[in-house]
Design a protein around this nucleic acid. Structure first.
Lengths: 340, 340
DNA sequence: TCGACCTCCTCAAACGATTGCATAACCTTA
DNA sequence: TAAGGTTATGCAATCGTTTGAGGAGGTCGA
């Protein structure tokens, strides 16, 4: 049924501590006895109880990972990359999906603390909201590393991308192509990335005298469905921008769906630029121009930072900001040519 | 920093057991004392240690979830649905991603046993390979429910879809549209779904005298990239089928990418039917005909089965087979019209 | 006044593993 | 052969919580 150290010990007439030493390869056990113990343990299907072990040893070898959405390939790829770094070192993972809900995030974080994870890799929901909680977590000695998003109110190592730079590139590109009006389908606004991307777009547009009417900014809620609805809503307006900036990959899907339904042609009737490069950007007709980030690199870096944090808790870690890559495809109309 | 029962007890000059009873709402503590304890616990930020608690209580309130790929929206939606059922009941989740690797699956399952999860919801990698392991898990008293895929060698409750029925519908449809040759981009072949879908296609094709040349069956490895390569490979052949059946959603993406690259027009040059309906099926031009399954229903049912299993371990649970829905779009050419 | 019965609390033993220290046995070696 | 060293094992505490058993003190009724 289930085997414990004690049972193995009893069966062989030795003390549990001997069994423990034998199985964990520690010295102080005769080779003969060790062999007997190992073989019996095998036979009985012994697996140590991680709870008991970690209770005694003071670490769990579990890393908590907090993401807002696991259907988003960006996050699934980042998580995958983290696993690739940490799994070989025998770490396990507690994956927590907040669904952009700060309250749920709170419950999940408390769980992680309760289970005494060795560290937390998080893309927090809100750029400020759970500050106190995250601080608490750290005070309890659990290292936290932010990735993709971060809390702006707290000094913690992070790995994010250069959102402002990326958005500036996009707006500049649109300007060069002759666009003087712009709509934005935003992420969940209170998130770090949501705020950065929207603000940067507004800022750069202002500098270049590109108009962004308030009606042209619609909340896509970071989801396919949210963006679909937001796009439909936008197109109800009497006046439309010539280009649309969609703040992430799954929302791009939603916008494309809405445009198709409305029979709006890209790029003839509406130009499109999105954040993130997912497979569907390539197969859509026309292929979608975008800013690509590398989720795997992001995940790897964040995981590596975590390892450093665990090994050298005292060492100060700098935040990392990754560059993005602009990919020009065919979803933006060149208005300069069109005009003459 | 971190607070334990003992510390609270010491601070108030009472015994830890009193604190435990006070905080867990058990009788035998004066209301006055209880209030003092609760307020101090709050102040010290006390959170119980789940490991210690579960060690004593004999259950963890953690469910292990085993899936092959978290980038696949089918699985992310199923998992999401499971959470919706179990999270309100205060269950947490250990999400394990096998990446179609039986060896990794083994390590992950051993971890789950080691952490003493209360149950395991699994979409196993191989239809037979880890039979012994899954049996072991059950013998240890951990209930297992399979979803999407199952082991055919073991009697365990499961929730799957009617793969054979779905594939038969597809092949019949193609036949009606005049197709007499067919190619298949398969899942990971050793998986339950991989085997079922391929076998059913071959079987029905034979009955209807639709030809499937061995060269027309390519292994897509269940991934976008795998399917992309498989499709390129298929098109290197001198003779081609008139239609292609792609065994899941992410592979559809890969095939579409390959076709686009090869400038093969759908459905003019090649007809296409896929399993699963994801958003991109709708936005592709032409929209893709497919068989849709409902991952959320599947997840909900599996999670509910798990709850029953935990509550009434003795009660026998029947396997559930869900029906699928055929969605006709525009990716299949009507050869009967073309000819006549 | 004495037993019966609360109420509120303490005690101590679990759960399953790890680990510093003690001890017994054996082996060297001068 | 006795001192000193090495090796194998046992002992007991510990991690943080829960929980059955038990005890001290009070109230109440007969």
């Amino acid at each position: 049924m289930k085997a414990t150290l004690k049972m193995i010990a009893q069966a062989l007439g030795v003390h549990p501590s001997t069994v423990s030493r034998a199985l964990s390869g520690k010295p102080g056990v005769s080779e003969e006895m060790r062999a007997k113990i190992i073989s019996l343990a095998q036979e009985m299907g012994y697996l140590p109880d991680s709870r008991a072990r970690s209770l005694r040893q003071g670490h769990t070898k579990i890393i908590g990972i907090v993401i807002p959405d696991m259907g988003n390939p960006f996050f699934s790829q980042a998580v995958s990359a983290m696993e690739k770094v940490l799994f070989p070192l025998e770490y396990s993972f507690f994956l927590c999906v907040t669904e952009e809900d700060s309250e749920k995030e709170k419950v999940l974080l408390e769980n992680l603390v309760s289970y005494k994870v060795d560290g937390i890799l998080a893309a927090p929901v809100d750029r400020v909201k759970n500050t106190k909680l995250y601080k608490e977590v750290q005070k309890r000695g659990i290292p936290v590393i932010f990735f993709d998003r971060r809390l702006v109110t707290i000094e913690t190592p992070y790995a994010v991308i250069d959102n402002r730079g990326a958005v500036t590139t996009i707006v500049d590109y649109l300007w060069k192509k002759g666009h003087r009006t712009l709509g934005v389908i935003t992420l969940h606004r209170e998130s770090y990335t949501g705020m950065e991307r929207l603000e940067a777009a507004i800022e750069r547009a202002k500098e270049l005298k590109i108009e962004i009417k308030p009606d042209w900014i619609k909340d896509g809620m970071s989801t396919e469905t949210g963006a679909y609805k937001a796009a439909l809503e936008l197109f109800k307006g009497s006046e439309l921008p010539t280009a649309l900036f969609v703040c992430n990959n799954v929302m791009a899907l939603g916008v494309l769906r809405a445009l198709k339904e409305l029979k709006v042609k890209v790029p003839e009737d509406m130009s499109l630029v999105t954040f993130d490069d997912s497979f569907w950007n390539q197969i859509f007709e026309p292929p979608v121009t975008c800013v690509a980030q590398d989720p795997e690199q992001l995940g790897m870096i964040a995981a590596t930072m975590m390892l450093n944090r665990i090994r050298y808790p005292e060492k100060k870690l700098e935040g990392v900001v990754l560059k993005t890559r602009f990919i020009e495809r065919a979803s933006v109309k060149d208005l300069t040519k069109a005009r003459g």
